[in-house]
Amino acid sequence: MASELFSVLVEVRLRQGIADPQGATIERALPALGLTGVTGVRAGKAFRFDIAAADDADALAQATVVADRLLANPVIEESSVTVSPAKQVV
């Protein structure tokens, strides 16, 4: 059965209200670059991978499982999933 290859980007970040000492530390460093207007820095992680799937809905469903069950800890993190076509495979 033919399937398509999809590129997936999963972004994981701390939930609102969860302290983000890494983001705060980055923000405090920015005035040294002369940038005093940068606020609300939040640090996170990004994951890229490919999924062979029947269509983009299938790819999104699979990628969401990866994000929800492994890449993010729902106690402290939330994630967003972006799927785009990659290239054709047999």
């Binding site: 302290a19 890494q22 106690v75």
Partner: peptide, 15 residues
């Protein structure tokens, strides 16, 4: 992480 205990352990205050 295994769900046997509630909550999570995040990075220490002040990193």
């Amino acid at each position: 992480e295994a769900g046997l205990l509630p909550g999570a352990l995040q990075k220490n205050r002040g990193l």
